[in-house]
Each structure stands twice: as structure tokens, then as C-alpha cells.
């Protein structure tokens, strides 16, 4: 089994973990699961670094470990602990199988889209590229299928993970500055969203997106 195959298999694991992030009802457990997913992402970056021999990818994986495996779940867990009323497990809008089939359809569509592109650098990594592209849609699925606004933050994070992997696949030699841009961008947006969720919860006493129809400034 060569390195490219390992990257593809890890990509498959990425889909499974994102599905679990979407499907787990309790936001706290979903945060732990997100940490697990970020760990898979780190493994993908490190394996890619090993396969392509690019030292930048190793540093990427180290920064991703700190920002995504530790800091992002920590921020969300911190926000969840700060809430006075404990969030109840809001039922998602879709049934479990609908979500799974949606994700399945998205991945297949992305695979078809990617198969048309001829890129010499990622010939063996096409499945991984399709998966990273599909993560944009998986994140969207998370946002539209969940009523809990904390879970919707994870939808954004999933999208962001997808863009991270596709950047690593398409431009492994990209300078550190780009990577720093991506990492901090995600970090700050999560901080802002967690802050917003806290304020919403404090003033409206709910995390249900369906009830947030008349937000006042």
C-alpha cells in the first residue's frame, strides 16, 4: 500500500467523522468528535508531507494540530460551559438517512466533477480531492440540517477543513503565509461565532435557529 492510498483512505475516514459530527445530537460530544476529525486532517497533512517530501506540509500539520484539534473544540466547549441554561439536544431537521444520502450524493457529484479535471500533480489523489471538495457541501448540509446553532458552527468548520485539505493537495509548496492566513481566519471566525452564540443564548434563552426569527440589535 503506497502513501497515496493511505491519503485516500484517510479521506474516507474524514467523511465518516464529518458525518458523525453532523449526526451526534449532543453538541459537547460533537465537539469531541470534531477534534477527532481534525486529528484525521492532521494525519492527512503529515502523510502528504511524507509522500511529496515537502517540509511545509509538516509545519502545516503541526499548526493544524494546535489550532484545530485543541483550540477550536476548546473554544466551543468553553462557550457551552458558559451557558447558564444547559442546551437541550435539539432534534435535527432531517432524518438520519436523509442526511447520509445527501452526503453520499454530494460526494459522488464532486467525484464526477473532479474526474473531468486533468492535473498531473494529483492524478492518484483524485478521490481525496473529491472528498475535500465535497466537504464544502457536507458543511452546508450540516448547517441546513441542524436547528442547534452550536452545531451550525461545526458546519462552517467542516467547510473550512475541506478547503484546508484541497489547498494541501493542490499547492503543497505554498508559502507559510497562506497557511497562517487560513488557520487564523478559521480561528477568529469560530471565536466570533461562539461569542455570538453566547450572546444569543443569554438574551433569547434559546439555541434553536427556528426561533431566531426576530433578532433585535
Amino acid at each position: 500500500m503506497d502513501g497515496f492510498m493511505i491519503v485516500n483512505i484517510l479521506g474516507g475516514l474524514l467523511i465518516l467523522t464529518s458525518l458523525l459530527v453532523i449526526l451526534i445530537k449532543n453538541p459537547k460530544n460533537a465537539a469531541y468528535m470534531y477534534g477527532g476529525q481534525a486529528l484525521v486532517l492532521v494525519a492527512i497533512l503529515a502523510t502528504l508531507g511524507f509522500v511529496t517530501g515537502s517540509s511545509e506540509l509538516y509545519t502545516w500539520s503541526v499548526t493544524a494540530f494546535f489550532t484545530k484539534v485543541i483550540i477550536v473544540p476548546a473554544i466551543i466547549l468553553f462557550a457551552l460551559n458558559k451557558m447558564q441554561a444547559k442546551p437541550d439536544d435539539l432534534a435535527p431537521r432531517f432524518a438520519l438517512v436523509t442526511t447520509v444520502l445527501l452526503v453520499v450524493g454530494e460526494v459522488i457529484l464532486c467525484y464526477l466533477a473532479v474526474s473531468g479535471i486533468e492535473l498531473p500533480t494529483v492524478a492518484e489523489l483524485k478521490p481525496a480531492l473529491a472528498i475535500s471538495l465535497a466537504h464544502f457541501f457536507i458543511g452546508l448540509t450540516c448547517i441546513i440540517s441542524q436547528r442547534n446553532i452550536v452545531k451550525q458552527i461545526f458546519g462552517y468548520c467542516l467547510m473550512e477543513n475541506g478547503s484546508h485539505v484541497s489547498l494541501a493537495l493542490l499547492a503543497p509548496e505554498a508559502p507559510k503565509l497562506v497557511e497562517i492566513g487560513i488557520a487564523t481566519d478559521a480561528l477568529f471566525s469560530v471565536v466570533i461565532m461562539a461569542f455570538l452564540v453566547l450572546r444569543i443564548q443569554r438574551s433569547l434563552k434559546t439555541l434553536d435557529a427556528n426561533e431566531l426569527t426576530k433578532l433585535k440589535g
Binding site: 485516500n8 465518516l16 438520519l96 438517512v97 447520509v100 453520499v104 473529491a130
Partner: peptide
């Protein structure tokens, strides 16, 4: 029925991985 749908969901995921070739 819900639980058999879960099995269908897992099988559909397996189909995706087959299409992806992993």
C-alpha cells in the same frame, strides 16, 4: 424501519467509497 434505514445509509456510504476507489 428507522433502524433498517440506518443500515441502508451505511451501505450507501460503502457504495460511495467503492465509487471513490478506496
Amino acid at each position: 424501519g428507522h433502524q433498517t434505514w440506518t443500515v441502508v445509509g451505511i451501505a450507501a456510504l460503502a457504495l460511495v467509497f467503492f465509487v471513490l476507489g478506496i
